[in-house]
Write a protein that binds this DNA or RNA. Sequence first.
DNA 1: GCAATGACTGGTA
DNA 2: TTACCAGCCATTG
Length: 113
Amino acid sequence: MEQQAGDAEEYVESVLRIAEQVPSGHAVSYGQVAAFLERGGPRQVGAVMARYGAAVPWWRVIRADGTLAEPLRARARAHYLEEGTPLRSRLDEQVRVDMRAAAYEIPRSVGPL
DNA sequence: GCAATGACTGGTA
DNA sequence: TTACCAGCCATTG
């Protein structure tokens, strides 16, 4: 019954799985992913992304208000411009994703393996 | 076992 | 609109 360790691994796989299948030009929030998995919370999703997110399009998993942590913001902007993600930038800075337009509903087929 | 930390969220001012 | 606050939950020291 070493389920606990297995659950942690499965949780990571599920989070990465979701991040991987978010289509270009769309984005989901940490809370959205956590609510979909019904597991942990937004901070746990963020923790997984911080550790294993490098292997997936992490810029498609963002905060509920369409912003990102500062160090990531600058990197994500380039990807958004390249993918044509709907942005809500007023001036040259303060770039944030327009979640109303970029919102993406996670298909249930992506649930926990 | 307790305290601090973090790629968060929603509400109020 | 932005700024601040309290709540939440697993990980780490």
